[in-house]
Computed example of a mutant assay.
Amino acid sequence: MSTSVRFKQLLASALVSASLCTTAFADTWRYAHEEYEGDVQDVYAHKFKEYIERESDHTLQIYRFGELGESDDIMEQAQAGILQFVNQSPGFTGALIPEAQIFFIPYLMPTNMDTVVEFFRTSKAINERFPQLYAEKGLELLKMYPEGEMVVTADEPVTSPSDFAGKKIRVMTNPLLSSTYKAFGATPVPLPWGEVYGALQTNMIQGQENPIFWIESGGLYEVSPNLIFTGHGWFTTASMANKQFYDALPKQDQQMIQRASEYAFNETLKHIDGLADRSLKKIQAADSDVTVTHLSEAQIDVFKERAELVEKTFTEMTGSSGKELLMQFKSDLAATE
């Protein structure tokens, strides 16, 4: 046998072996989030999947809201390693990581999109401090990202804390959010998402808060038709991985996952640009009974005064860790603005 033929046989054998090795390490990873098809978290998840499957032999199976349970259920599955990836808002993670509730201090975050985006890109609190806090709970924080300005819906227009008196407002299962609506003059009612529409329909609650795209997507305006733009914050969410799973991956896979999260982040920002306006137009076209109230600066100032109580509650809940985080948060915001 000639040297040339022998070399070709060895090369072919090596290529087959390499192919088999690649196949052996190609896995199907599971990713669950909290929203419906086409919503912001679903867009992020599919862009993440797109990058993973383009750059590796791995595949990603995505589960939307309700397919594996509520938000608390998918977090438990992620911590147990049943899911490799999970997307969950600090509104629910706050019970696990108290410091994550910082996003629910009203009027701490700006509402201008360009400022919000720049803050998420450059904030030391988000990009350096939060990964440590999540790691302590067995989670590899991949990316925190904004979804949209928070909007309140109610059974009648609201322009002052006195208008909230006697109203039960649904909140996510996070103690600080309850403190916010107590400060605003309402009675907070923690409820999982699956119960919200029915509770509004039966007047068990008289209002709730969410980004406008979610109010449109979930049909909440049908049973809670008065939209109030209070300017008190943005809805934030986070994608993360089971840390034990992540740490066991080859370095190249870890780097690929980080690149995928950055790609998904950038693509999602494109998606949310103008999304609120488009969603509001859909709501107004679908239901002529909907009212839209934008609070004036003077009206917002009244709510801002009450927000100081919530900031105090946050530092009491989280101790020195929370105080340091809040200082860094404010420093990052000042640098951005």
Rank of each mutant, 00 (worst) to 15 (best):
W193G: 07
W193M: 01
W193D: 05
W193S: 12
G194R: 12
G194L: 07
G194M: 10
G194Q: 10
E195R: 15
V196F: 00
Y197S: 09
G198S: 11
G198P: 14
G198Q: 09
A199R: 05
A199H: 05
A199P: 00
A199N: 01
L200R: 04
L200K: 00
L200Y: 06
L200V: 02
Q201N: 06
T202C: 10
T202S: 15
N203P: 09
N203Y: 11
N203M: 06
N203A: 05
M204A: 11
M204C: 07
I205E: 00
I205F: 10
I205C: 05
Q206I: 04
Q206N: 08
Q206R: 07
G207N: 07
G207P: 03
Q208K: 14
Q208I: 13
Q208S: 11
E209F: 12
N210D: 07
P211W: 05
P211H: 11
P211N: 08
I212C: 05
I212F: 03
F213Q: 08
F213T: 13
F213M: 09
F213K: 01
W214G: 13
W214I: 12
W214F: 13
I215S: 11
I215R: 02
I215V: 14
I215G: 00
E216Q: 09
E216C: 10
S217H: 02
G218C: 03
G218L: 06
G219I: 13
G219A: 10
G219F: 04
G219H: 09
L220W: 11
L220Q: 07
Y221C: 11
E222A: 11
E222V: 09
E222D: 13
V223W: 00
V223Q: 07
V223Y: 12
S224A: 12
S224Y: 01
S224K: 08
P225K: 03
P225H: 01
P225T: 07
P225A: 07
N226G: 14
L227D: 11
L227T: 00
L227R: 02
L227W: 12
I228F: 06
I228T: 13
I228S: 06
F229K: 03
F229Y: 15
G231P: 02
G231D: 08
G231H: 13
H232C: 08
H232M: 14
H232S: 05
G233F: 11
G233T: 06
G233E: 00
G233W: 07
W234G: 06
W234Y: 15
W234N: 02
W234R: 01
F235P: 04
F235V: 03
F235A: 11
F235K: 01
T236G: 02
T236S: 10
T237F: 14
A238M: 05
A238T: 14
A238E: 03
A238I: 05
S239M: 12
M240Q: 13
M240N: 03
M240P: 08
A241C: 14
A241L: 05
K243F: 05
Q244E: 10
Q244F: 11
F245Y: 14
F245L: 15
Y246P: 04
Y246L: 03
D247S: 06
D247C: 01
D247R: 07
A248Q: 09
A248S: 14
L249H: 06
L249C: 12
L249D: 06
P250I: 03
P250A: 01
P250F: 01
K251N: 12
K251F: 13
K251Q: 13
K251Y: 05
K251L: 13
K251G: 14
Q252Y: 13
Q252A: 11
D253K: 15
D253E: 14
Q255E: 13
Q255C: 12
M256Q: 03
M256G: 00
